[in-house]
Structures are given as C-alpha cells and as structure tokens.
Design a protein around this nucleic acid. Structure first.
Length: 135
DNA sequence: TTGGCTGGGAATGAAG
DNA sequence: ACTTCATTCCCAGCCA
C-alpha cells in the first residue's frame, strides 16, 4: 500500500482516461473499438423496428433504404445527439455527410426522393458486425 | 413560381 | 503535423 507519490498519480491519470473512455462508450461514440460512423448509426436505426416510421428498407432492393418525409428530421436529431454536437443536426446537414460517402462508395444515392443504397461491401461488414453483437 | 430535395465547394472541428 | 470523417455554411440546379 506504500507507493511512491508519482506512481499513484499515474494510476489516477489512467483511471481518469478509462472513465472518460467508458463515458464515450455509453454515449455511443464508439463501435467495436472504432469510431462510430454515420452509416453504422443508420444501419442500427434500420434494424430497429421501432424506427420504421422514420426510415426503412425498401423491399426487394438490396441495401436500399428511404427516409420518411415527415420524420427525417427526427433521425437527424438523434444522430446529432449521439455525436454530442454543439449545434443540432438537421436532415440538410446529415445528407451532406451522406453525400461524402459517394467518394468512398460506402453509400450511393438512388434517383428516388430520400432514398439511398449501401454498397454490397458495406452491407456485408455491417451484417457481420451485427452478428458479433448478438453472441 | 415556390418549396423540398439534391449536389457539392470550402472552411472548420474532432479525433487518432 | 497530418489524415480521416463529420459538421457547418452557403449557393445553385432540378422538378412536382
């Protein structure tokens, strides 16, 4: 129990770091040890039946999903809360982030109103991560 | 014509 | 210091 002062403060620093890390985990900013990305969040929402009135898969088209016109702002607001942004998230801004995925090809825009599509690769990694969770 | 979506440049922020 | 991803702002085009 008799430790040098410097050793104790090092421990305190480490504990402080871990506590902050845990706080971020519970705030949902981390997923599988990696930073939470927008498409992870959207996938989560899509797999949640309680969110079907906000956004849902388009039947018979793999990886295609669509926001509801009336609740799209709700999804955006939730996303903003999850990230802990200073200013409230809006659909306008969230869709801008969605457009950034065009470069990386993780999500592409479908020529239909409020609808987008996960790439095959993105979809398979998301589904495998989802498997990990339920075990 | 107008409002709702869409597209994207550019600057800034957050975090590793 | 540099990259990645997201946020914020803003403007312009399209179309029902």
């Amino acid at each position: 129990m008799n430790m040098p002062q410097s050793y104790q403060t090092d421990l305190e620093v480490i504990l402080e770091f871990l506590e902050e890390h845990c706080r971020q985990e519970t705030r949902g900013q981390w997923e599988n040890g990696k930073k939470l990305r927008l498409f992870h969040f959207l996938f989560e929402m899509l797999e949640d039946p309680g969110m079907a009135h906000c956004l849902s898969w388009v039947p018979a088209s793999v990886g295609v999903f669509r926001f509801s016109s009336t609740y799209k702002e709700h999804v955006a607001a939730l996303w903003g809360q999850r990230k802990g942004n200073r200013r409230p998230m809006t659909y306008q801004k969230m869709s801008r982030a969605l457009r950034n995925y065009t470069r990386s090809g993780e999500i592409i825009k479908v020529r239909k109103k409020l609808t987008y599509q996960f790439s095959g690769a993105t979809l398979t990694t998301l589904r495998s991560q989802q498997r990990m969770k339920n075990t």
